[in-house]
């Protein structure tokens, strides 16, 4: 085993981690304990797993933030303590936010519905 990991210091992720060549890493190239950068879940888009999605209606929203706090994927965008939309890159379509919303500002529709088209949303069967 390579000593470089034992003596790496406060962080065992080296500066020159060759991420682009990840598929070809040898056994000893892996940082001890699979230490890796934090917070890169933001770059891993899971929105493609949905088959239903929530549509948010601003005019009905009271900014109570129940949708935000219950979202398992932190997929409700907030700006200045105001809801500003749904993060469709990460929303997995679990359907909890419409259940939590007391004001009817969220509705689940099939994935193929264009959520930017109010008529299409209105016509869609709520899921």
């Amino acid at each position: 085993m390579s000593d470089k990991w034992i003596k790496a210091g406060p962080s065992s992720i080296p500066e020159n981690l060759d991420i682009d060549n990840f598929d070809n890493w040898a056994v000893e190239d892996f940082p001890i304990g699979m230490v890796g950068p934090a917070g890169n879940g933001a770059e891993y888009y899971t929105g493609g797993w949905r088959h239903e999605k929530p549509v948010w209606q601003k005019d009905l929203c009271k900014n109570c933030m129940l949708c935000w706090i219950n979202c398992a994927d932190t997929a409700v965008f907030m700006e200045n303590q105001t809801v500003s939309g749904i993060n469709y890159h990460h929303c997995k379509g679990c359907g909890v936010c419409p259940i939590e919303c007391r004001f009817g500002a969220l509705k689940m529709v099939p994935e193929h519905v264009d959520h930017l088209d109010p008529a299409a949303v209105a016509a869609a069967e709520g899921v």
């Binding site: 962080s11 065992s12 990840f22 056994v27 892996f30 304990g33």
Partner: peptide, 24 residues
């Protein structure tokens, strides 16, 4: 070897889901 309290935030025991990573 590592101390999560020091340095920038990082993940210990990251996802190793696809391909040969877990096995390596």
């Amino acid at each position: 070897c590592d101390d999560l309290m020091i340095g920038s935030p990082r993940t210990l025991g990251a996802f190793a889901n696809l391909g040969p990573t877990y096995m390596k």
